[in-house]
Amino acid sequence: MAWMIIFMIVPLLLIAVFAFTTTVPCDRDGNRLDEEEAAEIIAEEQAYWEENEIPLDERESAVVEKTIFTVQNILEVNKYMPTMLNSIWMALVATLICLLIGYPLAFMISRMHFVSQKMMLMLVMLPMWMNFLLRTYAWMTLLERNGLINRFFGLFGIGPFEMINTQGAVILGMIYNYLPYMILPLYSVMTKIDNTTIEAAQDLGAGRFNVLGRIIVPLSAPGITSGITAVFIPSVSTFIISRMLGGGTNMLIGDLIDLQFLGNAYNPNLGSAISLVLMVFILLCMSITNAFDNEDKEGGMLL
């Protein structure tokens, strides 16, 4: 247990530390130098070293880096608010569509014959067994300007349509990749709804919509919240999908973070700050949905 906690907490702490620190140049006595000063000194040193052909292992700079506490990174995140909001918006749209597709599907599966249920679940999970990159790549080839879909339309003399590198393509990618995470928790609470419970409601005068609103939705509420969380969180922080299907035109928050760590904008401190803000935001969202869920009390487990 203790190890589990350490295992989970340590990387988070690291990110927090990164987010609230930055490295600044100092002299050897620990006095802070401003950027220009430091650059000047370094340039002079460099020239001196070169001139006297000092061996590499004997070159000692008068300028060292020092890590200091700062909230600058966090404040800087503000600059990326539009990207953040755009990510949240797209993730919300994808989550909503997943819910709209997944809910009836999960219900249908839960009412099927036992054997068909197992088969449908296999089908739902099938794409998950394929590598994430590969299945997104597959969509790339489908959506491309001379991809399969456009070629198909071409047969009828329509198109080609601009499909790849659009917001729609990114959302499609999110839906395709994360739909199973919506269906599975929904299915698992829905199988627990007895047919006779539904019949009892019908018996008391409930038509289709009342059965849905008064019985099925309340009883599947825990599945709805865990489904939403399970789709929204990976969608909001994805970067591969937007890179492959969005073509870089639609920068998401995930791309931004990625760029700070592995990209050319190298700045792990800023990257950490963005992730931290994102995490706080997600935690907020989750506590809201959970509070919403608790209102309906009882019900099944959170997946």
Partner: peptide, 18 residues
């Protein structure tokens, strides 16, 4: 069923758990 003027007590009660 929802339009019939009969009501049922089911074999396993079928109460609404929520």
């Amino acid at each position: 069923p929802y339009k019939r003027s009969v009501n049922t007590v089911f074999q396993k009660y079928a109460l609404f758990p929520h």
